[in-house]
């Protein structure tokens, strides 16, 4: 569908979601579905940006705290909180967002390259920005978000390290290699 004819390929379809009052867009081709954020089981020992796992019709799927992943303050669960289930290169994961507003079609020409950092989001995760009349939509590169890029994981671990003392709850984030021996043999 998306890469069919010329007319269509010049057009983007985005799922527009909110994080901290900012609108972001994800390529609809990678979005499987959108569900309510309930029943998340935390995973001890997983990276801090992993909120936990959910049961999606019998499949156990990791859920990512999108805000944290993008370098924003962690999300606060509310009425509108949703999980966007995406499939990127065969990996299925859920992304927690503050709300999903719409599905939008827009011409590819309206997308500009992203500046170094928009709204505090690390540019590494961005595909570009779209200006639509008065609105600014930040296009998120899902592949990057899900990529277990070593460098990013390292940054994660560093970040987790710094906020561990003051965030006892959310700081299970010792990264994949950090944890077990440390606790196990104490």
């Amino acid at each position: 569908m998306s890469d069919g004819s010329n007319r269509e390929s010049a057009e983007l379809q985005l799922v527009v979601f909110r994080l901290k009052e900012q609108a972001y867009g994800a390529d609809i081709g990678q979005v499987l579905e959108i569900i309510r954020a309930t029943g998340i089981t935390a995973i001890p020992g997983a990276p801090s940006f992993v909120d936990g796992v959910i049961n999606l019709r019998g499949q156990v799927i990791p859920v990512i705290d999108t805000a944290r992943r993008l370098g924003l303050p962690p999300a606060v669960t509310g009425e509108g909180t949703r999980i966007i289930i995406v499939d990127v290169d065969g990996i299925t994961a859920g992304l927690i967002v503050d709300g999903v507003s719409e599905v939008l079609r827009l011409p590819a020409s309206s997308v500009r390259p992203a500046p170094a950092a928009v709204g505090g989001v690390n540019a590494a995760y961005l595909q570009g920005i779209a200006l639509l009349e008065e609105r600014l939509i930040i296009l998120v590169d899902m592949t990057r978000v899900l990529q277990a890029d070593e460098k990013l994981v390292l940054q994660e671990i560093a970040a987790a390290g710094t906020d561990r003392p003051d965030a006892p709850d959310g700081a299970q984030g010792a990264g994949p290699d950090g944890g077990p021996d440390a606790h196990g043999t104490r």
């Binding site: 995973i43 001890p44 020992g45 796992v53 799927i61 990791p62 994961a93 994949p176 944890g179 196990g184």
Partner: peptide, 19 residues
């Protein structure tokens, strides 16, 4: 037994999940 999936891979202390 369910796997935690490729994204999480091996999580120390855990061998999987169940519903």
């Amino acid at each position: 037994i369910k796997s935690l999936g490729g994204y999480l891979g091996q999580v120390p202390g855990l061998s999987g999940a169940t519903i």
